[in-house]
C-alpha cells in the first residue's frame, strides 16, 4: 500500500518533470533566433549625416515576427499585459482589440499569424520576457537588406520591385502566417513583406539632433521636426514602413505593426 503510494508519487513527479521539459522545449522551439553577422552598413535614411557608414555588431534576431500564439502565451504568464489590465499609460485603445477576449483569440485569428495591435511598450515587455529587446532601426534595416544569397541586395532593382509588388498585392488583406516565404541569408523570414515592425528607437528617428536654435525647438515634438531624409529616393517599401512608424505614439496599437526581438551574441562582428 505504502509502496504503491510512493510509486504513484514517483510516477506523478516523473510526469510533471517530463511535462515541464516538454513545455520548455516547446518555448525554445517557438523562439528561434538566428545570428546576423555584423558589418559596415550605409542606411537608406540619413539619420546621422549623409551616407555615413555605421558599424553594426553581430546580433541574434528572431527568425520570424512574434506570432499571435506567442503573444497569447505571454499574456497568460504576464497577466498585467492582458488587454483588460494593461494600463493606458502603456497600451492605448486598440490594444489586442480584435481578439475575442483577454485570453481568447476567437476562431477568426490564426495563432500562426504575426501579432499586431500591440503598443511599443507591450512589444518591449514581450522581448524582455525572453531576455531580448526590440532591435534598433539600424539592426532591423541591416538584417532586412539581405536576400537569400546576398548581405546587401538593395542595389538590385528586381529585388526592390519584388518587395513592392508583394506589399501592394497584400494591401487590404489580413496577414498570412509567419515563416512562409524564403528565408534570407541569415535564416530570417518575413523581413520586408508581411508586417511593419516596431524598433526600439523609432520615435527618436523623427526628432532633430540637439536643438540649437531656441526658436526652432517648439518643432521638436515627438513626431514633429525631423532630421530624417531618404538617401535613396526609390526605397519605397522602406519609406512606407518609416511613414507607418512615424504616425505612431508608443502607446498606439495598429493592425499593421508587429515586432520581433533581438539578443546580443558573444561573437565578434
Amino acid at each position: 500500500m505504502a509502496g504503491n503510494r510512493i510509486e504513484g508519487n514517483a510516477v506523478r513527479a516523473f510526469v510533471l518533470v517530463m511535462l515541464a521539459l516538454a513545455t520548455c522545449g516547446h518555448a525554445e522551439a517557438g523562439a528561434e533566433y538566428r545570428t546576423v553577422s555584423g558589418g559596415l552598413f550605409i542606411s537608406a535614411l540619413s539619420l546621422d549625416g549623409a551616407r555615413a557608414p555605421v558599424r553594426i555588431a553581430a546580433f541574434a534576431m528572431r527568425a520570424t515576427p512574434v506570432t499571435v500564439g506567442d503573444y497569447l502565451a505571454f499574456v497568460h504568464t504576464h497577466p498585467e499585459w492582458r488587454r483588460d489590465r494593461a494600463p493606458d499609460m502603456y497600451a492605448a485603445r486598440g490594444y489586442l482589440a480584435s481578439w475575442a477576449g483577454p485570453l481568447a483569440l476567437g476562431s477568426a485569428i490564426d495563432p500562426q499569424r504575426p501579432v499586431t495591435e500591440v503598443s511599443w511598450f507591450a512589444a518591449r515587455a514581450f522581448c524582455a520576457s525572453e531576455d531580448a529587446r526590440l532591435p534598433a532601426w539600424y539592426q532591423w534595416e541591416y538584417a532586412a537588406a539581405a536576400d537569400a544569397t546576398r548581405i546587401d541586395a538593395r542595389d538590385d532593382p528586381a529585388w526592390s520591385a519584388g518587395i513592392l509588388q508583394t506589399l501592394l498585392a497584400r494591401t487590404g488583406h489580413a496577414q498570412g502566417k509567419v515563416g512562409e516565404d524564403t528565408a534570407n541569408l541569415y535564416g530570417l523570414h518575413d523581413m520586408n513583406t508581411l508586417v511593419w515592425e516596431w524598433v526600439d528607437d523609432y520615435a527618436a528617428m523623427f526628432v532633430n539632433a540637439d536643438a540649437r536654435d531656441p526658436d526652432q525647438t517648439n518643432l521638436l515634438t515627438l513626431c514633429g521636426g525631423s532630421a530624417l531624409a531618404f538617401e535613396n529616393r526609390t526605397a519605397y517599401p522602406l519609406m512606407m514602413r518609416v511613414a507607418a512608424l512615424s504616425a505612431m505614439r508608443p502607446t498606439d496599437a495598429s493592425g499593421n505593426i508587429g515586432f520581433r526581438c533581438v539578443r546580443e551574441t558573444g561573437e565578434a562582428p
Binding site: D48, A204, A211, L220
Partner: peptide, 10 residues
C-alpha cells in the same frame, strides 16, 4: 549617434 552625442527632443 555614432559620434556619441544624442538626438533627442525636449
Amino acid at each position: 549617434r555614432p559620434n556619441g552625442d544624442f538626438s533627442h527632443n525636449i
